[in-house]
Design a protein around this nucleic acid. Structure first.
Length: 207
DNA sequence: GGGGGGATTCGG
DNA sequence: CGAATCCCCCCG
């Protein structure tokens, strides 16, 4: 038996983004009847992180990153996929944690309705684009308060603590043009968990 | 007003 | 490995 689902305390999101990111592991993201446990994340800093959308300052797209912590930052990429982040920091650092993988917990039928009936459980939410698709998250959800029980999408704890020693690697999908940010060990995941997008890194692509 | 790149995914 | 596909940033 696990504790009842309750929205997280926003204070959990304050502090250095690289320390905050692994603390989100094992939390639960809920949208209606669908929910999944967060098993893979990446930290994105603000003006000091060339890989962050916030690196070059506030724009229309990244405005949510510059708002209060606990909001959902959603962006659209590659012309077809959405990615979801939890805004962290104190509203001045524009830091966020990218959600890269969930273990599906409930509402798998609804996820499969969105993603396709033939998708196996282990791939339903394995990847930032896949989890948004499975949970029905798109740009219309950008800016939503994840810490309010009234919101359509809520970030919850069921009492399971984050792993004492999460797996760590460089972030996935960054190009060489982000300079030294490519190698920063800012990706964290729960070893062996279903929903982790990939176990090992691939070298960055030249672009 | 237009060009180009992207925190991805899937199929061949 | 490369196409799909479009928002949005940025430059002029």
């Amino acid at each position: 038996m696990s504790a009842a689902l309750a929205p997280i305390d926003p204070d959990l999101l304050l502090g250095d983004i690289v320390a905050v990111a692994p603390r989100l592991l094992n939390l639960v993201l809920v949208h209606g009847t669908s929910s999944g446990r967060i098993v893979e994340v990446e930290a994105y800093g603000g003006s000091a992180d060339p890989a962050s959308h916030a690196y070059r300052g506030r724009t229309k797209r990244n405005a949510t990153m510059f708002g209060p912590p606990g909001r959902l930052y959603v962006y659209f990429t590659y012309g077809m996929h959405h990615c979801a982040n939890v805004v962290c920091g104190g509203g001045t650092t524009a830091s966020a944690v990218l959600l890269r993988g969930l273990t599906p917990l409930t509402g798998l039928d609804e996820m499969r309705r969105r993603r396709g009936s033939h998708v196996p459980d282990r791939l339903l939410c394995a990847g930032p684009g896949r989890l948004c698709s499975a949970l029905g998250i798109d740009l219309g959800y950008d800016g939503m308060d994840l810490t309010s029980g009234q919101s359509a999408v809520v970030l919850c704890s069921d009492g399971l603590a984050p792993p004492a020693e999460p797996q760590v690697s460089a972030r996935i999908g960054l190009s060489e043009r982000t300079g030294d940010a490519v190698g920063r060990p800012w990706r964290f995941w729960v070893q062996g968990a279903e929903g982790v997008s990939r176990a090992v890194m691939r070298p960055p692509r030249m672009r």
